[in-house]
Structure formats: C-alpha cells, structure tokens
Design a binder for these strands. Structure first.
Length: 432
DNA sequence: TCTGGGGTCCTAGGACCC
DNA sequence: TCTGGGGTCCTAGGACCC
C-alpha cells in the first residue's frame, strides 16, 4: 500500500464537475442552441447564475446583474432562461447515479460536482476518460475530471482539464511539484478556498500566483494567515487536510430567504410569506429526521435604492426541540411582529434554523410543555401533510397563516422558464 | 482603592463555496 | 424598471465559572 508523508494510506480523488451546468441542462433538450451563448438567471430574473462558454466569452458570468447586460444580450442573440431547478435537480441525479459506478464512494459536493474515491483504481487517468465520455453520452452534459491525491489538487486538476483542450477533459496531478508547469503561473484566486479577501491580503505580500504561494516557507504562511490558508498550502504539497465525506451529513442549519419582486408593506402579507418559509424549512427538517431548537428571522428593505436600508433580525431559543410547522410558526410570528414597522417597504425576508438535533431527542426533553401523546399526534399530522404535498404538489395543503402566499408566492418574475422536461408529464419533450 | 488567569460555552460576523 | 439563495467553517469576544 502506498503511504503519504504522514504514513497514511495514499488516496486518489477524482473531482467530476459539470461544465456550465445550468446552461448545459437547458441545451440538452434544445439542440438548436448548440454554439449559441446561453445564460440562466437567478430567482426574479435578477442576475446571471450560469453561462455557457460562449456566454462567458461575452463577460456574462455568475453574479452579473441581468439589466446591466441587456444590450450585450440583444446584440449577440444570447438565449436567456429563468432558472428551472426541477430540471437541473433531475439531471443532476442522473449524473450522480452514473458516477457511483466509478468510485468506491462518492461525495456529492453540490448540484453539479462530486468527489469520487478512486484510490483502488490502478489506471486513474483512464477511469477519468471513461467518466468523461459516459456522462456526456448518457446525459448530454459535458464534464471535466480532475484527479489528485488531495481534494485541493483534484480541484486544481479539474481547472487545468477545463482550460487546456490538450487534456481532453481529464487531468491528474499527484502533487504540486509534479504539475508545476501547468499550475505555477495560475493566479492565486484559482485555488479552492482563496476568495476575494485572501487574494487581497496575499497580494499585499506580493503573492500573485500559485507558484509564488508555494515558494513561501510554511512557517511564514502559518504566521501571516489563518488555518484555512495553511491547509490549502499543505494540500497542494499532497498532505490530506480535507476528509472525504461519503454519506451526506445532516444539515447543521437550514434556511429559506427570498427577494420580493414587489415591495411588501403590510403585516398580513409579510406574515403569510414568512409562515410559508417556515413551512419549507420544516419539511426539510423532517426529511432528515431532525428537529431544531433555535429559530431566526430577518427582514430587509431595498439595499440598492434606499440610502439607509433597514435590516432587522431576531432569534429565539425554543423551550424544546421541535420539527412541527405550527409550533415553529407560532414561535416566529412574535419575532416578526417586533421587526415589523409599517413605514418600511420590505424587499427581502428569510428564516433560518440552527441547533439541529436528531428528532429522537424531542421525546427526551425534561419538563416539556406537551404530553407524549400530543407530540405523537403532531408528528402524524405533519407526516400526513408532507405525504399529500409530495404527491399532489407543494402547497396543496397549507397552514392558514400562509394561505395567500402559497397561491401567489411573491409574484416571482420568471419570464423565460423552460419546460420541466424530465419531471412533469405535461411538459415532456415532443417530437413533431 | 488596589484586583489573576485559565477554561468553557455561546454568539455574531467574516470568509468562502457553488 | 431590473442586483439570488443555501450552505460550511473559523475566529473573536463576551459571559461565566473556579
């Protein structure tokens, strides 16, 4: 067995990342878009969240406000889509289920990427090529594969595979030294974990490239920056700092927030919207068999237009852990009421739950204000509601406090939404 | 009036990711 | 007119205890 410098078993990780995932999903059922720039917009058609490679060349990348790019979009006949999460989630499941065939375990890192443990393969680069071809052929989604002895190296290898056509979508980097000629010149912010702030502080110390970062002595890195930066340095040397997580861990916090297409300034409307958010997070909580004991809510006014935008948040520790929607709604409304002033035009609100525990601990709380029998009734009711909504559609059955927002969820703007080709029979692709 | 030091737990906020 | 949403991890600092 091969060992790393700490005497641990040597690992090989493959990072499989779908290219321009949302835009690629839209292209799967629209072959006429081949070669054309495609962008996908965020909720409310607010900003660009994904762009095909043709769109990226035009400067249409993640985070660009849509309204600022309208002239570019018209000029270059860019195909514009509102986000269609049902479609993306469905194609993501297909990709992930195929990937499971090529590693001893998988860590689904996000909707469009996954780490595979390929340590057992003797020919890892070949496995990478097979993955690259199979996913493209079976789903229509193009992917790049990066292989490395740490997650950071696999990420970087993936970047190299995407940027250099000569790699045909697959690149393997066992250590920084081995791949030096492909990565030393790359800007420091290409590293996984180096964002805007770290880039700025590294540049202040004359570190502009990955090469100059790796040339620094370890003691200097440890002294000047925090643990996360030092870990990146070690991972590039081939020392594993990030572990591999093969069973999706339960969420430690669950939240829902939305920007409203039109400002909200009445208590009744705000109450309904926030109650709807609670219902959403409570379903996610029950789906992972957990309950929560801490609940927060926030509201904001328009941060782009108002001179002194208002931001208010409040949180509460519940007397006992719960996963019950009505209990959570009852807890959130007084907090929301305290944040509400009718002089404000609210543009965004959200709820967040933390202090998440397994739902068995609910029964163990001492001095609970509910009897065991009442708790059992509550969970039977919740399970029934969840089942009905799962079968007949979200918001088929709602609590009275969320009734209107369930029917008209803040009038979300979605002017260019594609069909739910894979998840709704009414919207299936037709060949005529 | 003078007033130590170490440990733990909790929370808010920053930074990052996709 | 039009600027997203859902997460994780880390650190600093306050409160409290002995």
């Amino acid at each position: 067995m091969k060992k790393d410098i700490l005497g641990r078993e040597q690992k090989k990780y493959a990072l499989v990342d779908c290219n321009s995932f949302y835009a690629s999903c839209e292209k799967v059922f629209r072959p006429d878009l081949e070669g054309r720039p495609v962008v996908v917009l965020s909720n409310n058609d607010g900003c660009v969240v994904a762009g095909s490679k043709e769109a990226k060349k035009l400067g249409l990348t993640m985070g660009v406000p849509f309204f600022k790019m309208k002239s570019t979009i018209q000029k270059h006949q860019v195909a514009v889509f509102s986000s269609n999460y049902a479609l993306y989630a469905s194609l993501s499941r297909r990709v992930m289920s195929l990937l499971r065939n090529y590693g001893s375990s998988i860590e689904v890192y996000s909707i469009d990427e996954a780490f595979l443990d390929v340590s057992k393969s003797a020919q890892t680069t070949e496995v990478g090529s097979i993955i690259h071809n199979v996913i493209q052929q079976s789903t229509g989604i193009p992917v790049a594969v990066g292989i490395g002895s740490t997650k950071t190296l696999a990420k970087l290898a993936n970047h190299v595979a995407k940027k250099n056509d000569s790699f045909s979508g697959v690149c393997e980097l066992s250590s920084y030294k081995e791949g030096q000629k492909y990565i030393a010149h790359l800007p420091i912010d290409e590293l996984w974990g180096i964002g805007r702030q770290h880039t700025k502080s590294l540049q202040e110390h004359n570190v502009y490239t990955i090469g100059s970062f790796m040339a620094l002595p370890e003691s200097y890195i440890k002294k000047k920056w925090h643990t996360p930066v030092w870990r990146i340095y070690k991972e590039l040397q081939g020392v594993r700092c990030h572990t591999f997580i093969d069973n999706a861990p339960k969420k430690k916090g669950i939240g829902t927030a939305r920007t409203f297409a039109k400002p909200v300034n009445t208590w009744s409307k705000l109450k309904e919207i926030v109650s709807g958010f609670i219902a959403t997070v409570a379903v996610k909580l029950r789906n992972q068999n957990s309950c929560t004991q801490r609940l927060s809510v926030f509201v904001t006014t328009d941060k782009y237009r108002e001179q002194n935008p208002y931001f208010g948040s409040k949180s509460i520790c519940l007397p006992m852990p719960t996963d019950d929607t009505s209990t959570l709604i009852k807890a959130v409304l007084p907090l929301l009421k305290a944040l509400f002033h009718d002089k404000h035009n609210y543009r965004k609100a959200g709820v967040y739950i933390t202090d998440i525990k397994p739902n068995t601990s609910r029964q163990l709380a001492i001095g609970t204000p509910c009897s065991t029998e009442a708790l059992e009734k509550q969970s039977t009711l919740s399970a029934t509601i969840d089942k009905i909504n799962q079968k007949l559609g979200k918001n088929t059955l709602v609590f009275a406090t969320q009734r209107l927002s369930a029917k008209h969820p803040f009038d979300m703007k979605q002017t260019n939404k594609s069909q739910r080709f894979t998840t709704s029979l009414d919207e299936i692709a037709c060949v005529s």
